[in-house]
């Protein structure tokens, strides 16, 4: 598995988008913070899946929130995708993961397309668009290019935009990423697992579903016109949890005929049947982040009976890519060693 060439290619492609990436750290979502808490499934969740963490008992969890970039420099206040990786501890060293991000869709529907996208997104020297060019844009009723963040020298934004103009599948993700902003807190953002999973119910019925975490305190981003602050998310979370726990609702949409089961670039509209699957309560930020968080290797395909992966090629590729990445940085536990 670690020599799966596609997985290696994927990790290299992602790394190439972050020239200042430090060996031994995660290739993306490099800066993060681990939190502990528990998950309690709703009273209806068990009607949809036999998976252990949806049976209603309190399940301990570890969550890692992160900024999207693979750069080692923390810029909390920059407009960026955030991650929320959740590990449900099912007992006896058994666990399952749910990996989500603040984008509601991915950039590419296939491995090949993603490799192309990564090439397109390689950072190029970024300069402020000239005022004359901006005036021209305005005369064309065209959105001017966003200004770089203070101190930002290079960015993949222009490459991504050019790619999205050529590939409709990337448009929504690029468009949303361009205006995503920064959350006031890691627990004031909604996170989406993006891929389709297949749940198996106690009646053996298999359903295509997608998951999202919704913060019960509500979604809130920072003022985009104010100068961005580089480091605040970690301290905010520590302070907040000392006062009171933070909670998220796990929301599940059920797919229907015509939905893109295997295509993570297409969101499912809000009109799908929406099931409330449970509540996540986050209580503490462990002191030893290295042990409780940074060493953990999450994997979107670390599942448990009652929940399976779909035919989504990106989801399937992430399984090995995460493993390659784990080996490179020396993270814990290979979930598929037995297989």
């Amino acid at each position: 598995m670690p020599d799966n060439p596609i997985a290696v290619q994927l990790v290299d492609a992602v790394l190439s988008d972050f020239p200042d990436h430090q060996p031994g750290t995660r290739p993306v979502h490099t800066i993060g913070i681990g939190v502990q808490g528990y998950f309690e499934a709703s009273e209806v969740a068990r009607n949809y899946t036999i998976a252990a963490h949806f049976q209603g008992q309190r399940v301990p969890v570890t969550v890692r929130f992160s900024n999207g970039t693979g750069s080692p420099v923390e810029h909390d206040g920059w407009s960026d995708v955030r991650g929320m990786a959740t590990r449900f501890h099912l007992g006896d060293d058994v666990a399952t993961d749910l990996i989500a991000m603040t984008l509601a869709e991915f950039f590419a529907p296939s491995v090949d397309a993603f490799l192309q996208f990564s090439r397109a997104a390689r950072p190029a020297r970024q300069q402020r668009e000239s005022p004359w060019q901006k005036i021209l844009d305005m005369l064309c009723l065209k959105q001017p290019l966003p200004d770089p963040m203070p101190g930002q020298m290079a960015s993949g934004a222009a490459g991504m935009l050019a790619f999205a103009n050529q590939h409709r599948f990337a448009q929504m993700a690029v468009f949303q990423a361009g205006s995503i902003g920064a959350p006031v807190s890691y627990v004031r953002a909604a996170y989406h697992a993006v891929h389709t999973f297949i749940l198996t119910g106690p009646d053996h019925v298999r359903r295509p579903v997608r998951f999202s975490w919704e913060p019960i305190a509500g979604v809130r981003t920072t003022d985009p016109t104010a100068p961005p602050v580089d480091c605040y998310l970690h301290q905010e979370l520590k302070d907040r949890l000392q006062r009171q726990p933070a909670t998220f609702r796990l929301v599940m949409s059920i797919g229907e005929i015509g939905d893109a089961y295997a295509d993570p670039t297409r969101q499912w509209p809000g009109k799908r049947c929406r099931v409330f699957m449970g509540t996540l309560t986050l209580t503490t930020v462990p002191e030893d982040q290295e042990i409780f968080c940074e060493k953990i290797s999450f994997n979107p395909c670390r599942l448990t009976p009652g929940i399976d992966i779909s035919d989504d090629p990106i989801l399937q590729a992430r399984r090995d890519a995460y493993e390659v990445s784990r080996l490179r940085r020396g993270g814990q536990s290979c979930p598929f060693a037995a297989g």
């Binding site: 298999r206 359903r207 295509p208 797919g255 229907e256 005929i257 089961y261």
Partner: peptide, 13 residues
């Protein structure tokens, strides 16, 4: 959807 004539697929029918 109609079991004979409908726009069905195994995953959801």
């Amino acid at each position: 959807n109609d079991p004979l004539l409908g726009a069905n697929e195994p995953a959801t029918s």
